[in-house]
Design a protein around this nucleic acid. Structure first.
Lengths: 230, 230
DNA sequence: ACAAAAGTGTTGCACGTACACCCATGT
DNA sequence: ACATGGGTGTACGTGCAACACTTTTGT
């Protein structure tokens, strides 16, 4: 593609804040960098965008390369373009957050050359991050909180079948505050998009809780008149 | 600045959706393009970002070049990066919306080379736009609506002194629906950040309405515990 | 006096919030 | 039997929605 445009002597990247929920804690996936700059530092997974690649597909690709999963819930939330945010040159980055079900797949084996390893870190106990990635994370959690209030994103983080207590713990982790059990259940059930299963929790040494699943079809019916994105 | 990074053979731009409110209508500022591509088409004002320029400052500069005003309320809302969104080559664009008080300054004289002229267009009667600018506009109005529900952005669009009816008309224009007069006034006044002035509308041929102004200091006091951005 | 918009209250309903005890299960 | 979390209802206050008439002012 020959362009009549001035060349832009800069690079362009995607960074991803990948959220997961495990053991009652909200976590994000960080990589330990194998390359300079910020070698041996923890950082958000990210990579450069190719010239012939849309930014959505770049984000999908980067997530796939790191985790081996596709079809994750992803959302672009902000673009960071300070001149000096990258020590080696001008790099503008578009930030996405992704939500994944950690479930059993705790081990993440990055196949990329720039990451030594990847680990889940509880968001309340993050290491220092390279670049401006701490700012990016802060922005992501704020957007996530706001989004939680009008979109059913919590279910992207839970296993398909979950208990109401798990759901509540997740809300508490995202919003960073305690919620009232009775009120929470009443409200969630009143929406009408939770399907109660004929099945209970297993392997707990106390009264087993009922399992529920999110019924996306019902959700769409109920909220079809809403602004349907953003 | 010598980089160790691969060169990115693409360009990088800012596009602005500039909202104004006039004669009871919400409008945006469009330019008629003087250059290809989309010569003679209407489009959102925008321009390339310089290499040594942060994206916030680029957005500020572009607005200043077009309108001659600074210190506008601006907000980044989305980045558009499809490979083929620009016919001449890869151009990724970060979109901002800006809010301005049209007041008297109806005439906008663009000093840029790429725009023949600039006009305000009511958002309910927009011409066809070049590039993917119609999509960008659609996204902007959705973000604006949502933002209106939790931030006092309406006052950026009104003159310093305004009547409650003007305020209501603006809300109706942004939300695209009628509101109840009594409920609207009650709610607005209950917030406590509107200051009633000892002054009335002038030059109308009916009962003159009281003027109010937005008291940002009070607003900040009242909402200091809120999430304070995004 | 008339036209035009300003200004003003009440009621019912839906929703959020506060709050404490018994139940079922596994060990 | 005990420990652990599961599961449940009520009462109150707040905020939103529906609704129509009188007042002021300029012409």
């Amino acid at each position: 593609m020959e362009t009549g445009l001035p060349k832009f002597d800069s690079a362009f990247s995607i960074d991803c804040v990948i959220f997961g929920f495990e053991a009652g804690e909200l976590k994000i996936l960080l990589i330990e960098r194998a390359e300079d700059p910020f070698k041996d530092w923890w950082a958000l997974p990210g990579n450069l965008v190719e010239n012939d690649e849309g930014i959505e597909s770049a984000a999908t690709r980067i997530l796939y390369e790191l985790t081996g999963w596709r079809e994750l819930h992803m959302e672009q939330f902000h673009t960071f373009g300070d001149v000096n945010r990258h020590p080696l040159g001008r790099v503008i980055t578009v930030a996405y957050y992704a939500l994944i079900r950690i479930n059993g797949k705790k081990e993440v084996k990055p196949v990329t050359q720039y990451a030594k390893k990847a680990f889940w870190h509880p968001i309340n106990d993050l290491p220092r991050l390279g670049f401006d990635h701490s700012d990016i994370f802060e922005t992501s959690i704020q957007k996530l909180r706001r989004r939680l209030s009008y979109q059913p994103i919590a279910f992207e983080l839970l296993p398909e079948k979950f208990t109401l207590t798990q759901l509540q713990l997740l809300y508490e982790a995202i919003l960073n505050k305690k919620l009232d059990k009775r009120n929470f259940r009443k409200k969630m059930l009143s929406y009408g998009f939770l399907k109660e299963l004929d099945e209970k929790q297993k392997g707990v040494s106390y009264r087993a809780a009922k399992l529920y699943k999110f019924d996306r079809r019902k959700y769409n019916k109920i909220f079809q008149n809403d602004m349907n994105e953003e």
